[in-house]
């Protein structure tokens, strides 16, 4: 089996294993949560237990399928690019609440555009300032629906 296929197969098995562990952990947690006494069918955990049980059974079948058959997933073109895009996006969505909409969006675009292969510096800066800027102008000043502002500027 070619090394790429082996890697993809491993990735598939790891994802399925993670899902299985999550489902089992959630199922076990249903026995540790305390609820008022109710007959079995009216317990708040009655329905989730059925669903989690089905999830576990399907997951085991899926895991066996992943081990037995090779996956057709596309290989990652550049690991550093995808990891950076995910990391930058996660930081970005977390910063909006505290740092406002404009500044994190601008920084996000400045980092993200080169990652997607845009090399023209002028276009990058123009896009990074113009797109969030237009949105702030539109929502804050024209539509009167304020977006979160930075604790440093209070204006955008």
């Amino acid at each position: 089996m070619p090394p790429t296929i082996t890697k993809l197969k491993q990735e598939s098995v790891i994802v399925q294993l993670l899902l299985l562990i999550t489902a089992i952990a959630l199922y076990l947690s249903t026995f540790k949560q305390g609820f008022t006494d109710a007959e079995a069918a009216q317990s708040p955990m009655f329905f989730p237990r059925i669903i989690l049980m089905l999830w576990i059974v399907l997951n085991i079948i899926g895991l066996i399928q992943s081990v037995r058959h090779s996956n057709v997933t596309n290989p990652i073109a550049s690991w550093w690019r995808i990891l950076l895009v995910i990391a930058v996006t996660c930081v970005y969505v977390n910063l909006i609440g505290s740092e406002g909409f404009f500044l994190p969006s601008m920084v996000f675009a400045l980092i993200c555009l080169p990652l997607f292969g845009i090399r023209n510096g002028v276009l990058i800066v123009l896009f990074a300032v113009a797109v969030p800027g237009v949105l702030v102008l539109l929502f804050n000043h024209m539509l009167g629906m304020p977006l979160p502002t930075s604790r440093f500027t209070h204006y955008f």
Binding site: Y92, S105, A109, C112
Partner: peptide, 15 residues
């Protein structure tokens, strides 16, 4: 270019 579209999608989704 794809990069402009993708960045705009993330910004619009977050907004």
């Amino acid at each position: 270019r794809e990069g402009f579209m993708m960045s705009a999608i993330v910004i619009l989704c977050a907004l």
